[in-house]
Amino acid sequence: MSPALVTITLLVVVPMSLILIYSFYINIDLGVDRPAFSFENWSELFTDNYYHVAIWKTFRLSVIVTVLAALLGYIPAYFIANTTYKHKWLLLLLLILPFWVSFIIRTLSWIHIMGNQGAINGVLLWLGVIDEPLQMMFNEFAVIVGFIHVFLPYMILNVYVSLEGVDRNLVPAARTLGCSPWQAFREVTLPLSLPGLAAGSLLVFVLTAGSYVTPLILGGPNDFLYGNLIYDAILSELNWPMGATLSFTLLVLLGLVVVLYSRIMGMNQLYKAFG
């Protein structure tokens, strides 16, 4: 563990401490900061509702994306883990192929699928199901679809890895003991795959909460996340002190989520030790 601790200390903790110092500076003009020990940025963050709305929006969207990713991702992971298909590695590899096409390109290409002249509307219009194209792009729906598409592989792989570790004799054993398939799944497979599900969910949650590009490309004017405010502060307004303040807040909030996660994971281990 020491290499990990050292690298993270050097490359995350130290830089972030430098950033923390910046949060007390005062920004005078674009790109011009004055060293100071001022709580101006922090008090703006705590008193201005603009930031609170963004935090709430981000939390809400992250929960939605995480839940949907878990629902969508669990079954394919179960399928990969239990299939008798010989080339299991191929199924796994297929999952990461979308990454070969750069994230920006993939995100931009949704317009060809969900746009007014996109594939879905084309088919529906042709079938006569609708008379007017459905507006699927540039709203929250599109943002969620975009997020799920990017993060689902993380969920599936995490769940798969846990499922693959489940002892293959357990389910048949439960069945001989009179469990229905559903009961066997609920009592045996699901609890054993929870660590993977939890890890996947944590990743998806945290990644969604820190994003800013997907809402910029797929969303309408109302779709933005906390990450967009950070981007605005640092790269558009060139206001490092405010950007530092906002980033630190995100770090602390997400850090709390992770602590919560490891507490629950720890309980899980206990449960297993006794069970």
């Binding site: 993270i8 945290v206 820190g210 800013y212 790269l235 950007g243 980033s247 770090l251």
Partner: peptide
């Protein structure tokens, strides 16, 4: 654990 995961918690720009 939080410490090890911290790189994803920090916005990349920052």
């Amino acid at each position: 654990t939080t410490f090890l995961i911290s790189p994803v918690l920090v916005p990349e720009t920052v």
